[in-house]
């Protein structure tokens, strides 16, 4: 079997394997030193090859097109969507978010999933899911994919603090003049005892609680929270707290983003 696995190294390198075979090979790679060495050697051998490409001038206007599309991206897609597995209760949300980005009607599964999240979260959230067609005109759609984003005010990716290897994204969905905050996080370190993860929103450096959650065995967690009152929050952050009752952050900020 080993030999068979070693034989497909090149196909692995060229990403020519089925998902199943790829995973098999990656497992094989963990203990096959020969393949590890060969792969490292291969990567080194091809390192210069891109420079064999002769310089070609990019098409007119490419820079503008690409940069504007890229900058728009975080408003439409939560990066975590790519990393969800079907086993997750919230996967429908994440998968749909990704799959339907180019589909005009992806709002529905999102809201359905936001509900699921609120049930799975701390229960403190209330969602108002009235359709707000009258807001469609508010955001002039630059491209068709933006057409149904009327209620989504912001989509953010939180940056991990130095030394933290976790990811989180936040969606702010406005409904009935209230803001629903939906947070999803991945790769968070495991919690002990009564510890929880706490989401905060800050204004003038004053933190306000914005959802408490715990992670599963894989370090994933999610929460949906209804933000009352003032909407001009400046920062969103996630900390680890000794229990679910912290009124002020006691732990270090693990992830954060300006709003």
């Amino acid at each position: 079997m080993n030999n068979n696995s070693c034989d497909i190294l090149l196909d692995y390198f060229n990403d020519q394997l089925s998902e199943e075979h790829r995973k098999e090979f990656e497992t094989h790679l963990l203990y096959c030193e020969e393949c590890q060495d060969e792969l490292a050697e291969l990567e080194q051998l091809v390192e210069d090859l891109p420079y064999a490409a002769e310089p070609v001038n990019p098409p007119e206007g490419m820079k503008g097109r690409i940069l504007s599309t890229v900058k728009d991206e975080n408003k439409n897609i939560t990066p975590l969507a790519h990393k969800q597995t079907e086993a997750e209760g919230k996967s429908s949300y994440a998968k749909e978010t990704e799959n339907k980005t180019k589909n005009k009607s992806w709002m529905k599964p999102l809201i359905a999933a936001a509900l699921t999240l609120s049930l799975a979260g701390n229960g403190a959230a209330l969602l108002y899911i009235n359709n707000q067609d009258n807001e469609v005109a508010e955001e002039p759609p630059a491209k068709p994919i933006n057409e149904s984003l009327d209620a989504i005010k912001q989509s953010l990716t939180l940056s991990p603090s130095s030394g933290v290897n976790a990811e989180a994204s936040a969606l702010m969905i406005e409904q009935n003049e209230k803001m629903n905050l939906v947070i999803e996080a991945n790769n968070l370190p495991p919690l002990e005892g009564e510890e929880t993860y706490q989401v905060w929103v800050l204004k003038d450096d004053q933190p306000h609680r914005a959802g408490t959650f715990v992670t599963n065995a894989e370090g994933k967690g999610a929460v949906s929270y209804l933000l009352e009152g003032d909407k001009s929050w400046e920062t969103i952050a996630i900390t680890k707290e000794p229990n679910a009752n912290s009124q002020k952050p006691k732990g270090e900020i693990l992830l954060s983003s300006p709003i």
């Binding site: 891109p50 002769e54 310089p55 070609v56 990019p58 820079k63 940069l67």
Partner: peptide, 14 residues
């Protein structure tokens, strides 16, 4: 982007 535009584009074109 400016730093790598041409190299990446040329490589992709290749």
């Amino acid at each position: 982007y400016d730093r790598y535009e041409k190299l990446l584009f040329s490589f992709c074109y290749r």
